[in-house]
């Protein structure tokens, strides 16, 4: 056991995956000597060489395009996109090519590619550095979309994602990169929770909060605050946005009867909408209130001096909790 930041936990996870399989390659901008702008690939080029940790030209579309070709040769590329707002030049390769490759080749050319993307706001950045693009990818059949909420999950999930035979969009909550927690550096992935499973991170009885990525910590804090007022909230870290672990969610909602979904992304047409539809259908007779969503407003990500009004925080989560409980 060691206490690691999420950035360091991801770094260690990448290291273990590279040690385990010499077909694993890292590709991205400034990931070599610099170690990535968030230091997630720190020292890896020094230790594994520059043909396994590749500083690419400044062209996201080709980071993904080349990864597809490498995968056809049997490599397992892990692509880093420097910030969420810069994945869009690669959007065509991801949605039109990567996502469809397996189906079109009848499974002959699997695409074990991981696309790592630091995402989300709350760090006072200039525009295009605070986006939450998960819904675009979750909406695209053929892609799997996961996002860790804490260092220990990050360490395990990055290794599981690299081991996945399918392409995985791996969203890293950048404002949680420096959160610290105990991480067990065991090579035993088999005993860890399955990659596409949700985890109950706090048990409660009155209402279920379903969340992921940067909002996990926020929801845990909200649950603490609610407990002080005598309300018992269950918090579920979804971890996987696609596929959704609906069973874990439904089991919880059948007990609590109330669900609030929390994410940073704009609410309309988002992950919360999908969850609300599925849970309403599956748990209709257990629900004591409509499923509520807390998320960003349907506006372009605002300038950082007012981002705190855009991002869901403790107060906005509790406000929705109160609305749900008042039904």
């Amino acid at each position: 056991m060691a206490v690691l930041t999420m950035s360091k936990a991801l770094n260690l996870g990448l290291r273990r995956a590279m040690e385990r399989d010499d077909r694993v390659l890292l590709m991205g901008q400034d990931i070599g000597r610099l170690g990535g702008v968030f230091r997630v690939t720190d020292s890896l080029q020094k230790d594994f060489g520059d043909s396994r940790v590749i500083d690419t030209p400044l062209a996201e579309s080709s980071i993904l395009g080349a990864a597809i070709g490498l995968a056809m040769r049997g490599f397992r590329p892990v692509c880093e996109i420097q910030f969420d707002g810069f994945v869009f030049p690669a959007f065509d390769q991801i949605t039109a090519q990567l996502a469809k490759h397996r189906a079109r080749s009848s499974g002959a050319t699997p695409m074990p590619i991981v696309v790592r993307i630091p995402y989300g706001g709350g760090i006072g950045a200039v525009e295009h550095h605070s986006e939450s693009p998960e819904a675009y990818f979750a909406h695209t059949p053929g892609l799997r979309v996961v996002t860790p909420g804490d260092p220990a999950s990050a360490f395990v999930m990055i290794q599981q994602a690299i081991a996945s035979a399918d392409p995985v969009i791996f969203l890293e909550p950048k404002r949680r990169y420096w959160d610290k927690a105990e991480v067990a550096d065991s090579s035993e992935l088999a005993s860890s929770p399955e990659l596409f499973s949700a985890q109950v991170v706090r048990v409660g009885t009155d209402l279920t909060l379903a969340t992921y990525g940067p909002m996990v910590r926020t929801c845990l804090q909200a649950a603490d605050a609610a407990a002080a007022e005598g309300k018992s909230l269950e918090v579920i870290d979804l971890r996987s946005v696609s596929p959704l672990d609906i069973e874990t969610l439904a089991t919880s909602v059948e007990r609590t009867g109330r669900l609030v979904v929390v994410h940073e992304a704009q609410v309309s047409f988002g992950v919360g909408a999908e969850i609300a539809a599925r849970i309403t259908q599956q748990c209709f007779y257990h629900l004591l209130a409509p499923v509520l969503r807390v998320g960003g407003y349907d506006v372009p990500y605002p300038p950082s001096r007012i981002e705190s009004h855009y991002l869901p925080d403790l107060d906005r989560v509790l406000d929705s909790v109160d609305s749900s409980l008042a039904y």
Binding site: Q29, D30, L34, D55, T56, L58
Partner: peptide, 10 residues
Amino acid sequence: WAISEPSERQ
């Protein structure tokens, strides 16, 4: 330079 990458990388 492009951040840490020298122009020979482009």
